[in-house]
């Protein structure tokens, strides 16, 4: 039997570990921000990874450069993300939606290039990234770093578990924040602007300002994704923040269902389950020689993720924009 050599137990263990792991929490938080942007305010943000980077660098630099208290460092991450939002929003939010898309995708890549540049090396440590900020956070870790902590079938090291708890905590708080806001009159205005900006203007709502607020809110939430990631990995690496990452967040959002408040969390778990399963299976197939190296060598297995993400993103957007669990009727209203 061809598949006999596959270690299914290992694959399932890996998959489950990722479903509840740090990455899933980080992606979920970033996608919650994106949900505020696209799902509720209709803002086409193609550079969410830039906000994530700003959060991570804002927090990291607050400690490495200015030696702030960790809580103030978190504030630093929020400030960085806010500045980034203003920088992108001021020129584009009065214009048609696609201008924001163009500027965000460009700006996010620029953030990465600047962070890794040798010119700013004295500040951002270039391609090496920030590695010396984690100390103050470790002091607050209630878990034993060398012990394993389990949730059900999976377990994590104490050092990582701390970040995972923070990550899912932040994700849930962010969901509750968005839920509260979107049921308030503020959320009503934001949704109205998504539906028709002119109508909102004619009803006395300052559409530009509300869009700016939504951009900042979603951006700061994205910044938290960067901070959680940095705490979990004890490093801020510029090349983590590559452009495709934004579209992984998009896929997470669309999998869960655009404009649904829990969608990013569900979407992120599905995403990480799917991707980890496929990649581990692919790796084993190649390692065992079941897929010959003339077709794909081990180094290429990781590229599969981009094909899956790209294709799924496009197909879902066309055929099931309401997400895996969304209802059809709601989309039928969308005559745009």
């Amino acid at each position: 039997m061809l598949f006999a050599a596959i270690d299914w137990g290992f694959i399932f263990d890996q998959t489950l570990t990722q479903v509840f792991g740090l990455n899933a929490a980080v992606y979920a938080i970033a996608a919650i921000g994106l949900n505020v942007h696209f799902g509720y305010a209709g803002l086409l943000n193609f550079g969410q990874v830039g906000f994530v980077a700003m959060g991570a660098y804002g927090m990291g630099l607050s400690i490495t450069l200015w030696e702030l208290h960790p809580l103030l460092a978190v504030l630093g991450g929020m400030v960085f993300a806010t500045i980034f939002a203003l920088l992108l929003g001021v020129p584009t939010l009065r214009l048609r939606a696609d201008y924001l898309a163009i500027v965000t995708i460009a700006a996010a890549e620029i953030v990465r290039l600047m962070a890794r540049s040798t010119a700013l090396r004295s500040v951002t440590r270039g391609a090496e990234g920030l590695n010396e900020f984690i100390g103050p956070f470790r002091e607050y870790n209630p878990f034993n770093p060398s012990r394993a902590y389990g949730i059900g079938l999976v377990d994590y090291r104490g050092s990582e578990f701390f970040a995972i708890v923070i990550g899912w905590g932040v994700a849930i708080l962010a969901v509750l924040l968005v839920w509260t806001l979107m049921r308030s009159p503020w959320g009503r205005v934001v949704k109205a602007i998504r539906e028709d900006e002119d109508a909102a203007l004619a009803l006395g709502k300052n559409a530009y300002w509300y869009k700016m607020q939504a951009l900042i809110l979603g951006g700061v939430i994205g910044g938290f994704a960067g901070m959680v990631d940095a705490i979990g990995k004890a490093t801020v690496q510029p090349d983590f923040f590559v452009a495709p990452l934004t579209f992984f967040f998009w896929l997470v959002l669309i999998l869960g269902g655009v404009g649904k408040v829990w969608a990013p969390i569900i979407g992120s778990m599905i995403y990480w389950g799917l991707i980890t399963f496929v990649q581990n299976l692919g790796r084993q197939l190649v390692d065992q020689g079941i897929v010959p190296t003339s077709v794909m060598d081990p180094s290429q297995v990781d590229q599969i993720r981009f094909w899956i993400v790209g294709a799924t993103l496009a197909l879902l957007m066309v055929f099931r924009p309401q997400g895996i669990f969304g209802s059809k009727e709601e989309m039928a209203l969308d005559a745009r």
């Binding site: 193609f46 696609d98 898309a101 579209f247 669309i254 981009f306 790209g310 993103l313």
Partner: peptide, 11 residues
């Protein structure tokens, strides 16, 4: 536009 993004990743 999202489709062009997906396409660009795949390609």
């Amino acid at each position: 536009m999202v489709v062009t993004i997906g396409l660009s990743l795949v390609l």
